[in-house]
């Protein structure tokens, strides 16, 4: 059932994005949604922040300077990943090499999309994130230990983070969620349908139109 890269411990530089409401339109502008592939989207990540209209790089943008061109972690202000449900935002981060996102609050659909793609979403108190934003900007290496559920910025003490136990297990093992649901719950799903059919038969058009 393994299909994603298992996540154990990731260490690397973190790009600091000290700004609130970095929505998925900023992470992956809508015009690139016409592409139907999911690979190779990293070059469009944060496109309109990274590039001028003529395609040259915007000097001073965090992702346009070493060592942040391919960050392992993004540390951001509240509501990162809000807005559109587009999973391309996560695939684009994946394309950059991002394996964890840290913020005081995350867009909820984005949060779930991260979990489905081997990216660990980490929600921490605003003061903790503020300190991590500074550490990230200063180039401190970040370590995300999913086994131990901690994130460490530079020489600071490891900070524990919360994650639903089953989600953690799935990330650690790289399990495919659909496989997991079908293997564990196909019987329960069929039993649910049998019960619902009796109470809400109008939800089963196939019974009358077949």
């Amino acid at each position: 059932m393994t299909s994603l890269t298992p996540f154990t411990t990731v260490t690397g530089h973190a790009a600091a994005m000290p700004e609130e409401n970095i929505d998925t339109d900023i992470i992956f502008p809508a015009r690139f949604l016409l592409l139907t592939a999911r690979d190779g989207l990293g070059r469009h990540a944060f496109h309109d922040r990274r590039y001028h209209p003529d395609g040259t790089e915007v000097a001073g943008y965090v992702l346009n300077a070493e060592p942040f061109r391919a960050p392992a972690v993004i540390v951001a202000g509240a509501n990162f990943g809000s807005g559109s449900s587009r999973e391309q935002a996560v695939w684009a981060l994946q394309g950059l090499g991002v394996r964890a996102v840290i913020a005081p609050a995350l867009g909820e659909i984005f949060h779930n999309n991260c979990l489905r793609n081997g990216i660990v979403p980490i929600i921490l108190p605003p003061a903790t994130v503020a300190a991590m934003l500074e550490a990230a900007a200063a180039g401190a290496p970040f370590t995300v230990d999913l086994e131990g559920q901690t994130v460490t910025a530079g020489k600071a003490d490891p900070v524990p983070f919360a994650i639903a136990p089953e989600r953690r297990l799935a990330l650690l093992n790289g399990w495919d969620e659909t496989d997991l649901v079908l293997a564990r719950f196909e019987g329960a799903i069929a039993a649910f349908e049998a019960g619902q059919r009796r109470i809400q038969p109008w939800l089963y058009p196939e019974d009358t139109t077949a």
């Binding site: 659909i109 779930n112 999309n113 793609n117 969620e177 649901v181 719950f185 196909e186 799903i189």
Partner: peptide, 21 residues
């Protein structure tokens, strides 16, 4: 009623069920 990502859509298509918080 809620929005989901493409991976979740694929799970819904195959299993008619989805993990939610």
């Amino acid at each position: 009623a809620f929005g989901i990502g493409a991976s979740e859509q694929s799970t819904v298509m195959a299993a008619q069920a989805l993990r939610q918080t």
